[in-house]
Nucleic acid binder design. Structure first.
Lengths: 172, 172
DNA sequence: AATTTGAATAATGTTACAATATTCAAAAAA
DNA sequence: TTTTTTGAATATTGTAACATTATTCAAATT
């Protein structure tokens, strides 16, 4: 039996050479979400590269460097998670604001409805999206389509202002 | 020493009464992401409630039941994470397709550019968004704004088709 | 009939461990 | 001498195991 020498100072795998470059700890995850979580921690699933108008050389990869970096849609579009909800738009009364039938509206309930903002209100149990306009002490809900009339708005039992629309997601 | 009886059939914490309602398993997570992961699995951070047009009674909470359930923007808008990138739109040549100056375009490179799709192409080092149109063996890039002319498109050294636009995110 | 108490059993956070990966340097080979 | 091989050294990694906690049941007690 041959020996091949004794102490090797500095031998062995160096610390910090793991996949993430930082220590890990076991965390219990519900089985249905393990895949999703692993994709997030390992492949930065939610970090999608974003470009301006210069053309990158190869195909974009989040690992590369980009002028405008990467973007996570949830973080970008949902500033206040607990105060945010989505509404699907119906009709074309707000076509002038870039809101089309079927678009997904991101609504932030924590924002104040100030003059000129696009808001979601319920009137007689129906949700509607209009531009919020104050004038001479009165409040109007303005469509952005000449085929529709303005609505004289006053908060009552059957009306409620739900929040301010921050983004419109349109599918092609 | 008093005894208080023997076998209790059915005693003990019932199976399935954990926080998630399903089994869990330990998964190693890099320490810097543990908070984010726990928020995701425990509070469904990325699950935002979505409504149709009926008005819910109280303020939406992901824990409640909703007619249309909840929605995670990343999952909803980014079907192929490794083939997706974002481009910020410039100009108003595609205003007819609901694409405004400054909008964020979600581009899927794994989709085939078929007739009628909105695509991202680079021409002379500039990215542009147009509708892809095939006619009589030729390919045209069509703007959706009468102020702009169609572009006769042929893939060459200085032109490249980058992908198909699946969604437009418009900020208000 | 209501309350107390210990048994029964699952959930949960963390430790432990075996298997794997990576690096070093002595020994062997070229 | 230079290159290759080989085992030692040590960190990583997935998961089993464990101790603690939480929850439920029903006998014993009030």
């Amino acid at each position: 039996m041959t020996t091949r020498g004794g102490k090797r100072t500095g031998a062995g795998r160096p610390q910090g050479t793991n996949y993430y470059g930082e220590p890990t700890k076991p965390v219990r995850i519900p089985v249905s979400k393990i895949d999703r979580v692993l994709r997030f921690v390992r492949e930065r699933e939610d970090a999608v590269p974003i470009y301006g108008h210069a053309v990158p050389a190869g195909f974009p990869s989040p690992a590369d460097d980009y002028a405008e970096g990467v973007l996570d849609l949830n973080t970008h579009l949902v500033r206040e998670p607990t105060a945010t909800f989505f509404v699907r738009a119906r009709g074309d009364s707000m076509i002038g604001a870039g809101i089309h039938d079927g678009d997904l509206l991101v609504v932030d309930r924590s924002l104040e409805a100030i003059n000129g903002k696009v808001v979601i209100v319920s009137i007689n149990g129906e949700l509607t999206v209009k531009r919020f306009r104050r004038s001479k002490g009165r409040t109007w809900l303005m469509p952005e389509n000449p085929d529709y009339p303005p609505i004289d708005f006053q908060e009552q039992d059957d009306t409620h202002l739900w929040g301010v629309v921050t983004n419109v997601v349109h599918s092609l």
